[in-house]
Nucleic acid binder design. Structure first.
Length: 462
RNA sequence: GGUACUCUGGCAGAACGGUUAUGCGUGAGCCUGCAAAGCUUAUACAAGGGGGUUCGACUCCCUCGGGUACCUCCA
């Protein structure tokens, strides 16, 4: 499998070893997660599930930044301790992402639980003369790391001249960034240099190396993290270990809304909670996977609606498969094998989910065609269903299970309706159909039989 | 200003040096008691502008222009 690497600007082969180690920069837990966060995490979820489908063991580490000025500000606004803010939003995070059918990461380390490791890490940087304590904190000396700027393709000189940040006189160089900030208020920890809290970037260097070691396979996150976050991580980590930090840097494009980046500061976010309520997890996933992960994705209700149409086709396909009982068989196995190969090929090539989805819809269409022509036999349906389930699993699409009682009830109602129709009691037949519709059950009348599908309830429909 | 990404039909969106996917939408038809869903089929002057390389470019190069992101809050 190849992934575009931001650092080398080339496609790189994902290591073929048995175990793939991935570090994904998670969220700062100070507010509700939005669709932008969802996209990044869905992309990595698909990457992971694909690799696992290929029998790779994946170790996925995703951090929570749980100490940060934003968290502290919010805590001050609400008059409660900072850890209560982070606790609340970590809970909300799992509420949202479990619903989005994201497989839980191997571990979700938190900055506040790794203060000792962070201090040790900083100690070594100071010993090596790469970091230095100053009046307001401990700083990383950018000039000591000649390769600084290699990820974001920035020249140190240009950064200096273009620098619009306030110059902190206590720093040796305006580009130097804090690895430890002195503070007396908010959550603080003792350190050899003074009371305070870690800088933002240091936690990812420390935790990724702690859990994955040096030179792990993929380090990822949103595009907006390239600079300064990932640039600084590389500097700290490689200065610390003298070895290569991550093999591949994978960055997911921004979600925009009306052409503008979705972000808290612009106040144009759509929270996952809100979108889930209105569209449900499957449509969100289809939407987030509808373009290449590296490109910008523009959020709009129209696009979600388009994906609703697609999702209904997927549901139809699934229910046709489980109700298949025709005698006629068309030889389908080669076609399905080709679809399967194409699907994998698309993902192998820099996780091209859009092309992969095209293959999936080919399978859906083929199934629905056979069903429409009353040619979907049990044997074929089993072949197709196996592939359908494999693909759905990788993409994280999920058709909710139903209870036996509910199925029984539906079957009985359909039987009654059939009798009514045979006796041309259409009013009664339509009443039963309406009753089923209220249960989100839609009937599909074929020539020989009627099948049903249980549709996911989508609030925004109609 | 610097850097990166980007500009494909009404919309979304891929691949590819020669045939320009796919989906949505739209039209027609099939099926139906009527619907719905589905299927079949049709539909599109498609490549920001201008140069160049080439027998041939949407695909490579140059140039001009538009958009977005980042340039110490950010997924």
């Amino acid at each position: 499998m190849n992934i575009q690497d931001t650092l080398s600007s080339t496609e790189q082969k994902v290591d073929n070893s048995e175990k793939i180690k991935i570090y994904l920069c998670g969220v700062t837990v100070y507010d509700e997660s939005h669709i932008g966060h969802a996209r990044t995490i869905i992309v990595f979820d698909v990457l992971r599930k694909y690799l696992e489908n290929k029998k790779k063991e994946v170790e996925l580490i995703q951090n929570f930044t749980d100490v940060d000025d934003k968290i502290i500000n919010r805590a001050n606004d609400e008059g409660i301790p900072a850890h209560e803010i982070s606790k609340r939003y970590i809970e909300n995070y799992f509420r949202d992402f479990d619903q989005l059918n994201i497989k839980r990461a191997t571990n979700y380390p938190k900055a506040t639980e790794h203060i000792e490791d962070i201090i040790e890490f900083i100690k070594k940087l100071i010993e090596k003369g790469i970091a230095y304590p100053s009046e307001n904190g401990v700083y990383f000396s950018v000039s000591k790391f000649p390769e600084y700027g290699k990820l974001s393709k920035k020249k140190i000189d240009e950064l200096k001249s273009g620098s619009r940040i306030q110059v902190d006189e206590t720093k040796k160089d305006p580009l130097d960034f804090a690895v430890w900030k002195f503070s007396d208020v908010g959550p603080t920890w003792e350190s050899p240099w003074g009371k305070g809290r870690p800088g933002w970037h240091i936690e990812c260097s420390v935790m990724s190396m702690k859990y994955l070691g040096g030179n792990f396979d993929i380090h990822g996150g949103g595009r907006d993290l390239i600079f300064p976050h990932h640039e600084n991580e590389i500097a700290q980590s490689e200065a610390h270990s003298d070895g290569k930090f991550a093999k591949i840097w994978m960055h997911v494009g921004m979600v925009t809304i009306a052409g503008e980046k979705m972000s808290k500061s612009l106040g144009n976010t759509k929270s996952i909670k809100y979108v889930l309520e209105n569209w449900g997890p499957n449509i969100i996933r289809l939407f987030c996977l509808s373009g290449h992960y590296s490109k910008v994705l523009d959020y709009s209700e129209e696009m979600l609606k388009e994906n609703l149409t697609k999702w209904r086709q997927v549901e139809t396909c699934y229910f046709e498969l489980i109700h298949a009982n025709s005698d006629q068989q068309e030889n389908i196995s080669e076609k399905i094998r080709n679809i399967s190969t194409e699907f994998d090929k698309s993902l192998e090539d820099d996780l091209n989910t859009h092309l992969a989805l095209s293959s999936f819809f080919e399978l859906v269409k083929e199934t629905n065609r056979l069903a429409a022509e009353e040619k979907l036999g049990i044997e074929n349906s089993l072949i197709i269903k196996k592939e359908f389930e494999r693909i759905a699993q990788i993409l994280g699409l999920n058709i909710p299970e139903m209870s036996q009682e509910e199925k029984q009830k539906i079957d009985n109602l359909i039987l009654n309706r059939k009798k009514c129709r045979e006796q041309k009691q259409f009013e009664e037949a339509d009443r039963i159909r309406d009753q089923l519709n209220e249960m989100n059950v839609e009937l599909i009348d074929h020539k020989q039989k009627t099948i049903w599908m249980k549709k996911e309830k989508i609030k925004s429909e109609k």
